[in-house]
Design a protein around this nucleic acid. Sequence first.
DNA 1: TATTGTTATACTCTATAACTATA
DNA 2: TATAGTTATAGAGTATAACAATA
Lengths: 137, 137
Amino acid sequence: MKDLLVNLPGYALRRASAAMLSDLSAELAPLNLRPTYASVLVLIGGNAGATPSSLGRALGIQRANMVPLIAHLEELGLIARTALDGRSFRLDLTALGKKHCQIVQDIFDKHEERLLARIPSEHRAHVLPAVRALWQE
Amino acid sequence: MKDLLVNLPGYALRRASAAMLSDLSAELAPLNLRPTYASVLVLIGGNAGATPSSLGRALGIQRANMVPLIAHLEELGLIARTALDGRSFRLDLTALGKKHCQIVQDIFDKHEERLLARIPSEHRAHVLPAVRALWQE
DNA sequence: TATTGTTATACTCTATAACTATA
DNA sequence: TATAGTTATAGAGTATAACAATA
């Protein structure tokens, strides 16, 4: 089978992203968190008092799609909401949330290590700046 | 908002992949094809007589999920199936399929150009080999 | 008027299990 | 016994439109 797609960086990005996401999902499964939920948790951990809207803007997730994410993290007892004014509220980690956040960050770090280990050393340092240039700015 | 995720290559890959996919979707929309469908079309174009199963293996798509892809490409009149034996069939581009395949390849090429143009030149050559190492082998 | 949170809905892609017909 | 195609179903993630309440 002649694969005409493997030399397309967009296609390669898609396959790599899917593979990484699949691995990370398995690593996060014991915490009852999927990658998106874990990302929100970590971001709240580093930004106490953030609102769903501000988190959504940082993560590229729309307001409407933040609702079930926040609700689930709250159900798990990992975050708590406090009214800021009549229409918005701040989010903070609970004690349990802080524990889980630390575990998630360890999983993220190990995941990143394994990921970088797969890349030939001469290319390794170029990946992050190159890939970030594709979606940032 | 302190973004603790932007330095994680896995997260950056995910955002970049999503951004590229969104762009490509818009470029393919006039053909009534989405990225996955276009990928299958191009792969059949380069591998006349391939079967759904063999295409699925090459693309990392399961047999069951190939069914609607093949059915839709056939409905659009882009591919035709011919029985190989009692349980499998070969796929080939129709005349219209060949035309559309060429257009898709042009879209892919332009898309790749724009993508590479966004990457600072000192990193550009490293992206494909690095990203391919993350899912191939 | 613009923003926040929310509801409802639909679509893309992927995953799994099970079935049939054939090799 | 293994493989090819299929059906049905479920889940994750994303997109859009609309609404009420508030700033």
